[in-house]
Simulated assay, not measured.
Amino acid sequence: MSVSYAAVLRVPHARRTFTAALVGRLSYGVVPLSLMLAVTRTTGSYTSAGSVMALFGGTAVFLSPARAALVDRYGPRRALPPMTAAYLALLGLLVLALARPSLLVLAPLAAAAGCCCPPLGPTMRAVWGRITPDRALLQRAYSLDGVAEELLFVTGPLLVGVLVGFAPPAAGILLGAVLMAVGIAGFASSPAVRETPSGKRTARRGGGGLTGLRRPVTAVAAVGLTLGVVDLLTVAFAEDHGYGGSAAAWLLAGLSAGSAVGGLLNGAVAWRASTGARLSASTACLGLAVCAAGTAPGLVTLALSVAAVGFFVSPTITTAYLMADETAAAEARVRAGAWVNTAVNAGSTAGTAAAGALAGRLPVGVCFALTGAVALAAAAAVTRRPRRGTSELVPLA
Rank of each mutant, 00 (worst) to 15 (best):
W339E: 09
P386W: 09
Y87V: 04
L232G: 01
M124N: 05
V11C: 05
P157C: 10
G161H: 10
E239R: 14
G183M: 04
G287C: 02
S102D: 13
V154G: 02
S102K: 08
I173G: 11
T342A: 11
D231I: 12
A112G: 05
L138I: 02
A107Q: 05
A248P: 03
S4T: 15
T123Y: 03
V154Y: 03
V394A: 15
M36H: 14
A192G: 06
G207K: 04
L152Y: 01
C117A: 11
A89D: 03
T226M: 09
L88F: 08
L393C: 08
G347L: 08
N266D: 15
D240V: 05
T295S: 15
V269R: 13
M124D: 00
G92R: 14
A346I: 11
A354G: 12
R387E: 14
L396A: 12
P168W: 10
E150Y: 06
A6Q: 10
N266W: 15
A332W: 00
S143P: 10
G58M: 04
F237M: 08
R205P: 03
L109K: 09
A377S: 09
P118T: 05
C117D: 15
A380I: 11
A136D: 14
V309R: 00
V52E: 03
S45G: 13
T383P: 00
V217R: 02
G389P: 02
G298E: 11
L225V: 15
R333I: 07
L98Y: 02
V261R: 00
P101Y: 14
M1Q: 13
L210I: 07
A381T: 06
F311A: 13
G212M: 00
G267L: 03
R77H: 11
G258C: 05
A253W: 04
T342F: 06
F187R: 00
T275V: 11
R215L: 09
P297C: 08
S2W: 13
N266F: 15
M1V: 13
A177L: 10
F311G: 03
F56R: 00
S256L: 06
R130C: 05
P118V: 02
A38Y: 04
A170K: 10
R130G: 11
L304A: 14
L33M: 14
L264N: 07
A260T: 09
V154W: 03
C116E: 00
P191W: 07
E392Y: 09
T123N: 04
R10T: 12
V309F: 01
A273T: 08
S274M: 08
L252H: 02
V230M: 04
T226D: 06
L362V: 12
A346D: 10
V220R: 00
G337D: 09
A14E: 03
S190M: 09
R387W: 11
L163I: 08
G146P: 02
